[in-house]
Design a protein around this nucleic acid. Structure first.
Lengths: 217, 217
DNA sequence: ACCATTCTTATTGTATACAAAATCAACCCG
DNA sequence: CGGGTTGATTTTGTATACAATAAGAATGGT
């Protein structure tokens, strides 16, 4: 049996990322407790975690709401993510061993299978992609980086409603990953860093293009 | 009256940073509740926050301990901090206005007074220095950066026991700050970035030199 | 109609009691 | 002795009741 606080964390997170949550919408601990089927105590724990991932925002008067970021803030988020993931890739290039390299290849094979289907299996792609990046983070062996990254990765998804992935974008991801693996195999720090930077920044632009435009109010 | 969770946060933080806490030492919620004079509930809130700042570590079995970082991890921490503070400085250079510039100058004046005394007032120096950097972070207008930075700034202090500041180091800080202000005034992004990078990295090396060597066990 | 003020209600904060889980020690059996 | 197992104890997890505070509604004066 999973701890109640973990249940709450996952349920609330899913509610925000895939559920009916609307950016900016107000949340109360009571409602969240209802959603996750536990009491307020573990909900509070879960909320603290989500607050750190900045999926949930606490106003000055301590009220909670679903995060809502401006285009400029999403931009900044991708910039930070690019910096930090590039740094992680650089560290990983120095530290990676053949076993981890194999795991990375296997993970990218899964990703290729997911995008090879017709229609492409987007959910499987996203999962494989996430795990690929998590593997790199693990190779970077930086507890701090591991702590910080979660606050940067899932953010844009909140606004993703209308986001579509083209076959070209999906294929490019696999190609980028292959090149990253090559850089790791060569233990070429600068190469790994720059491939990762391009990889994230490309993702940013393809995200911005398909994102819903901001409504001014 | 301050909320109990805030009291707990400050007391526990002080206990770790300036108190009798030893790196690696085990903590129980009960003991922390005793230290801060409140019940376990607000302590748990406080601990979550400290966990994010990575001053407190939670083991696999959910037990708490005072953070203890290897030299390599402190190194990585400074590298990340240099990257992110440099980024903050770059953003600040683009966004700063004359009012904020004035505040920055005033803050650095305070710092100069603190280090001008004999003996120098280290506590006042540290506080002025922290506030100076916080002002820059504010000018950077990046909620995410503001969220991430706290996890990187106070860390080294945990091991600082024997840390001494030389007059030369103190003076150099004031000089760096003056140059940063000049870069801001000129709105020169690249200049601001590189001055900040040097500033942090110098702090790192002067810290490492005076830090207590690691005991192997 | 508008602003301020009080009263009401909704929401978060805290303490406490109890449940679940993990650690440690004593013990038994091989 | 050593390894594993039970039982006692410590520690964390959860629910619930109540307190404190903030938001919203109603009221009254101008």
């Amino acid at each position: 049996m999973m701890p109640a606080s973990e249940t709450a964390y996952q349920k609330i997170r899913a509610f925000i990322l895939q559920g009916d949550a609307v950016p900016g919408m107000q949340l109360t601990e009571e409602k969240l407790a209802e959603i996750s089927g536990v009491s307020r105590t573990p909900v509070r724990d879960a909320v603290r975690r989500l607050e750190n991932e900045m999926l949930v925002i606490r106003s000055a008067s301590k009220r909670l709401s679903v995060a809502d970021w401006s285009a400029g803030e999403v931009d900044e988020m991708f910039t930070l993510r690019a910096m930090l993931e590039a740094h992680a890739a650089a560290r990983a290039a120095q530290r990676i061993d053949s076993k981890a390299l194999g795991a990375l290849r296997a993970q990218n094979d899964k990703l290729k299978i997911a995008i090879g289907k017709s229609p492409p299996d987007i959910a499987a792609f996203l999962q494989a992609n996430r795990q690929f990046h998590e593997l790199i983070l693990k190779c970077a062996q930086s507890p701090r980086l591991s702590k910080i990254m979660p606050a940067l990765v899932e953010q844009p998804v909140v606004r993703r409603t209308a986001h579509q992935y083209s076959q070209t974008q999906l294929n490019q991801s696999a190609v980028d990953h292959d090149e990253l693996i090559a850089a790791f195999a060569a233990k070429d720090v600068a190469w790994a860093r720059s491939v990762m930077t391009s990889h994230i920044r490309r993702a940013f632009h393809s995200f911005s293009e398909s994102a819903v435009p901001e409504t001014e109010n």
